[in-house]
Amino acid sequence: MGSMIAARDSSSRRKNYTQIILYGILICFLLFIPLFFQSPYVLHLFILTLVYIIAAASMRFIMTSGQIPLAHAAFLGLGAYVSAVLSKHVGLSPWLSLFIAAFVAMGVGIFISFPFARLKAFYYAMVSLFFGVGLLQAIESLGKLTGGLAGITAIPTLFNTASKVPYYYCFLALTLVSLVILYRFEVSRIGWNLKAIDQSYLVSSSVGISEVKYRVLAVAIGCFFVGLAGGMYANYNVTLSPSSFDSSVTLWMIIYVTIGGMNNFSGPIIGTAVLFLIPQYFSGLKQYAPFISAAILFLVIFMFRNGLVCIPGLLMAFYKRKKSTSKSR
């Protein structure tokens, strides 16, 4: 985390402008994606990527407080199932159920994180893993409502069209808004307090940061957004099954965060985009496709310890070194 602080201090105004221009280009590119790619399958992939970007970014937000939330995919499932059940069986509008799902996930997150705040490091990770497995099994055993192992089908959708373009724009907007909110939280006092707790909960509580309060807050914010992502997934995908939210999905979400770069806000975004989209390009290999993702994992973790976001920094350092050596000659 120390390098991050240094990077913030040294960032000049000019760099800020280039950043704004780069983000502008990126957003323009994202806005034009439905025009570039006409095929509904490609658009489907982009939509799912957006959902997972919210999930991974919210997971990283919890991880900045030093907690490894291995129940995160189960919360994604909770949001999805709450939204699906409310819109299908209760008959609420999907737009309303989406946000109710987010609040339910947040409520459950707060409810469990008060007792879990006693646990540290691995114990928190493992207990949250067990909670996630248990939550998913509870969802599965409510057969009448959730369809059990077979899953729930014919969930009302957000738009009444077969086209995927409105979903893409809607989800893009929701993702951008969520990311901006998460970013504002991270650079606010709350975000710095969370990082302080991560570094030393003893020191941070000695300077008046309530450990329990901020850890619960981190989980609450993270669970809200993952619940939102779950609701979006449910009302877009029409069908749900418990296997899409099991613990391996959580581990993949951790991988998205780590491969992208844990120390940077854009880490989970880049990681999800790379690891979700590139293996899909090789989906013609069928059962050999997982090897592609494994190869990416090994390549990135052995070559770029701090994730993909550190590549520009490494290139910059390489360029500078080359320049200085040529000057000294």
Partner: peptide
């Protein structure tokens, strides 16, 4: 975190 990533890579393979 890196250990988790490497292990998942190994598991996948």
């Amino acid at each position: 975190n890196s250990i988790i990533v490497v292990c998942i890579g190994l598991i996948t393979v």
